[in-house]
Design a protein around this nucleic acid. Structure first.
Length: 572
DNA sequence: GCCGTTTTCGGCCCGACTGTTTTCAGTCG
């Protein structure tokens, strides 16, 4: 069982927490946190990199020591230094630090003065009024702790981007209607179009005396006000989502937008470049000797550090700054580049709308083509098509195509990949289709080796074109199936097959880092909505978001091709 | 613990808000 990047990151994070409680050098603590982030953000597994003979100390924030520690973890599953530290300092203290408002300093006092090591101890102590007597603590802090403990352990899953959008839309409209409001925008991971967001960061500019802060904390969906000052407030909505609002002067809008869009790692890297040039960069602007020299627009901030403006989706400090420096930023794919949808369903299987309705909706989008890919027979819950019903659908599409001159309907199927890697529809029929989309809908938990073999075997079928929702993960619901993604991508490229970025907001499968992996492997991806209704076709933009985060350009995407080129690529 | 086009030593982002304080430490992002 290979050690996952997430596990390595978890060990480093815990080590950082415990060292912080022990008052270790804060920069050493930060080094472990940075390393945890580098590891978990890396699209390739550390185990694979090591197996491939790669030098991990080349990774940002990983030096000789941490490279060696990663190797030890991969080889033994253990981090000896963490075990040493745990012998002195209880590991559970790192859980206490997850409670909002408790950091290393307070946890250290709680542990050393009251021997508190877990949330239960903490609750008992707070209820009996012993917390307020500690130096540096008081009545309010004790109340805060009790309050936070009530909701501690509630699944603190990150919010899916689509849900965050639903939440923020009415809030933005409400704030927009405030007297004196000028700009208002959602920054943070939402603006970077991350597949999930931890909280929402709203940035506003407003004229002096605008009551925007008062209005914000008075919003009817606010369940709790965490803090509220003149320029910044934090609330928790009834949905559980944390929302920050920051108000800055107009002259600082661009600098603030950079600052609050992040990512943190990206900002720090940009600020370092600024420091080298003798500038101070913060949310109010770029300063030289306390004089603001840039900051009204984002572009002005980047220009001041000698870089072109970097798209929000790329701001993860994962190579975009170096690429910008060499003027080699990708020209990211956009919704306008898309010429058709290659995966959608009709009422024939589990879709809500008819063939005609789906095609009409695709025409309204200006698409050149749309592929109809209903399910195959094994998926009985979806009323999957057998050979006979598939033949009937083929006939329907042929007749409809004859009547249309502004769009072409491609005949397809989303065929089940069976456990042994064979396909759920006879080859004879697959050969009559324009494209075959294959997907795994059961046996998600095969071993990594077996799952990889299963998928490659499916791609061995000469009619196979696109692997749909490759890992079958559902965000916050079902983990990704284990597979050797690099092997799958290599196999796909060798066979003339493609992988899908499924644009359903709950899937977004491939992930952003998979997209990047595909680009590096020279493998085109299809961005498809897997629409089960005409409305589902609108999800394309979420797939585009994911692809943009994965550095994809139009040329990296199969369905940006004109129909004749697409047909060539679908002929193996 | 990492890092280097002024450096292999001496830096490492920094401002807002809160609570406990009487000038600041802790936490967060």
């Amino acid at each position: 069982m290979p050690v996952h990047n997430a596990e390595i990151a978890r060990l480093f994070e815990q080590l950082a927490d415990l060292l912080e409680v022990e008052d270790a050098n804060p920069f050493r603590v930060r080094a472990y946190r940075n390393a945890a982030r580098t590891v978990s953000n890396n699209s390739k597994s550390m185990a694979d990199l090591l197996a491939g003979g790669k030098d991990l100390s080349k990774l940002p924030g990983i030096g000789k020591d941490l490279a060696e520690k990663i190797r030890t973890i991969v080889e033994t599953g253990r981090l000896p230094l963490l075990e040493e530290v745990r012998a002195r300092t209880p590991a559970a203290l790192s859980d206490l630090m997850k409670i909002e408002g408790l950091g290393s300093k307070r946890v250290k006092v709680l542990y050393s003065q009251l021997h508190i090591t877990c949330p239960e101890d903490l609750q008992r102590a707070a209820r009996s009024g012993r917390i307020r007597e500690l130096e540096g603590f008081g009545r309010k802090t004790e109340e805060m702790i009790l309050h936070r403990l009530e909701h501690f352990g509630d699944a603190q899953a990150r919010t899916r981007l689509v849900d965050a959008e639903e939440t923020v839309k009415p809030l933005l409209a409400y704030l927009q209607a405030t007297r004196g409001i000028k700009d208002i925008v959602v920054a943070g991971s939402f603006r970077r179009r991350s597949e999930t967001v931890g909280d929402l960061d709203i940035l506003a500019t407003a004229s002096r005396g605008s009551p925007v802060m008062d209005r914000f904390v008075a919003y009817d969906q606010v369940a709790e006000v965490i803090s509220s000052g003149k320029t910044r407030a934090t609330v928790v909505l009834r949905s559980g989502l944390h929302v920050d609002l920051r108000v800055v002067p107009q002259a600082s809008y661009g600098a603030a937008l950079c600052y609050f869009t992040g990512s943190r790692a990206h900002n720090i890297a940009i600020r370092k470049i600024g420091v080298r040039k003798g500038y101070k960069i913060n949310e109010y602007g770029v300063f030289r000797h306390d004089k603001r020299i840039a900051g009204k627009t984002e572009k002005s901030v980047y220009r001041q550090v000698g870089l072109p403006c970097i798209e929000p989706e790329l701001r993860e400090n994962s190579g975009e700054i170096e690429a910008a420096g060499k003027n080699r930023l990708p020209r990211l794919v956009s919704v306008d580049d898309i010429r058709g949808d290659l995966h959608c369903h009709t009422r024939a299987s589990d879709g809500h709308d008819s063939l005609e309705e789906m095609v009409t909706a695709a025409r309204a989008k200006g698409y050149e083509y749309i592929a109809i890919t209903d399910h195959s027979k094994r998926l009985t819950v979806a009323h999957g098509l057998d050979e006979k019903r598939l033949l009937r659908e083929i006939g329907q599409i042929d007749r409809l195509n004859d009547k249309l001159d502004d769009i072409v309907i491609l005949k397809g199927i989303e065929v089940d990949i069976l456990e042994d890697g064979t396909l759920d529809i006879q080859d004879k029929l697959l050969g009559q289709l324009d494209l075959v989309v294959g997907a795994v809908h059961y046996k998600f938990n095969l071993t990594r080796r077996k799952q990889t073999e299963r998928i490659i075997r499916a791609m061995d079928n000469p009619y196979f074109n696109i692997l749909a929702h490759p890992t079958a993960r559902l965000i916050n619901e079902r983990a990704a199936s284990e597979m050797d993604m690099e092997k799958v991508m290599t196999a796909a490229r060798e066979r003339g097959c493609f992988l899908e970025v499924n644009a359903q907001p709950v899937r977004l499968d491939l992930t952003d880092s998979h997209c990047r992996l595909a680009r590096e492997a020279g493998l085109r991806v299809a961005i498809s909505t897997d629409a089960h209704s005409t409305k589902g076709l609108d999800h394309m933009r979420f797939g585009i978001d994911q692809a943009r985060r994965g550095w994809l350009e139009a040329a990296d995407v199969l369905n940006t091709c004109k129909l004749p080129d697409l047909r060539k690529l679908l002929t193996r």
